[in-house]
Nucleic acid binder design. Structure first.
Length: 231
DNA sequence: AAAAAGATCAACCGCTACTTT
DNA sequence: GAAAGTAGCGGTTGATCTTTT
């Protein structure tokens, strides 16, 4: 599918934003609200692409942003959530009011990775470094689910003790194919079309505890992951 | 004081998911 | 159902700042 460029490269400014550009963007959004980023630059009189405007607003100009160092409490929340859901920076940011996904991503790469390494923990797997033993695929799968449970429990404990707006709840279900793979004349096996899935339903502390969005299953993936939230 | 190395973070790029036609 | 348009996400880059030699 073809995509048109998000902006006319030749007629847009790039690089650092000037004070005047910031002021224009703030004034425009204060007057008209967020929305339709593509047409915003023209309407606001900015020589920027919509993407750039959105990023600038979301990460630096929004009035509800919290600047300054991360607290120990925030560190632990980030670590626990990362153990649970991986590099879902926007989801993690959603649990830290005033923090942005970009800020958390940068903080993770510059501080927390090192912090975990210093603790002897692999930042990607959240397992002790220098394990040494080799697991089979089945053992790996079981171990992974146990790790997720542990991370969920840790995150829930952390969350309930430090964040005042809800509980963390993790639900994991596994759905295996109820029908066998089809075999084509050339011998190639193809999955059944009834979209068998392994469904991960994460509910990260949103009041109401709505069930996951499994009904929105990806049509392309045999294995799918979901995390659906409500406030 | 100057240069080099390392750390930080704002911004861009490419992609995917979602929505509309 | 397919194509096109848009918003948002995550990875990466590069400019700038800070620390070390």
């Amino acid at each position: 599918m073809g995509r048109s460029p998000c902006c006319e490269q030749a007629h847009t400014n790039r690089g650092a934003w000037t004070k005047e550009e910031d002021e224009r963007l703030i004034a425009y959004i204060n007057a008209h609200g967020e929305g339709c980023w593509r047409s915003l630059p023209k309407a606001a009189g900015l020589l920027r692409c919509g993407k750039s405007c959105r990023l600038r607003w979301m990460n630096y100009l929004r009035p509800d942003l919290k600047r300054g160092n991360f607290t120990e409490e925030e560190d632990e929340i980030i670590i626990n959530l990362h153990a649970l859901i991986g590099n879902k920076w926007s989801v993690i940011a959603g649990r830290l009011p005033g923090r942005t996904d970009n800020e958390i991503k940068n903080y993770w790469n510059t501080h927390i990775k090192r912090k975990l390494n210093a603790r002897g923990i692999d930042p990607q797997t959240h397992r002790p470094i220098a394990g040494g033993c080799v697991r089979t695929a089945e053992e790996e799968a079981v171990a992974s689910s146990n790790d997720i449970d542990a991370a969920a429990a840790a995150a829930e404990e952390e969350h309930s003790s430090s964040v005042d707006d809800g509980d963390l709840d993790l639900t994991i279900s596994l759905r295996l194919p109820s029908r066998p793979f089809k075999t084509s004349p050339d011998g190639a096996a193809t999955p059944p079309t009834a979209s068998p899935t392994i469904c991960f339903c994460y509910h990260l502390g949103f009041r109401g505890g709505e069930a996951c969005s499994c009904h929105r299953a990806s049509s392309s993936g045999y294995v799918s992951g979901y995390y659906g939230f409500t406030r």
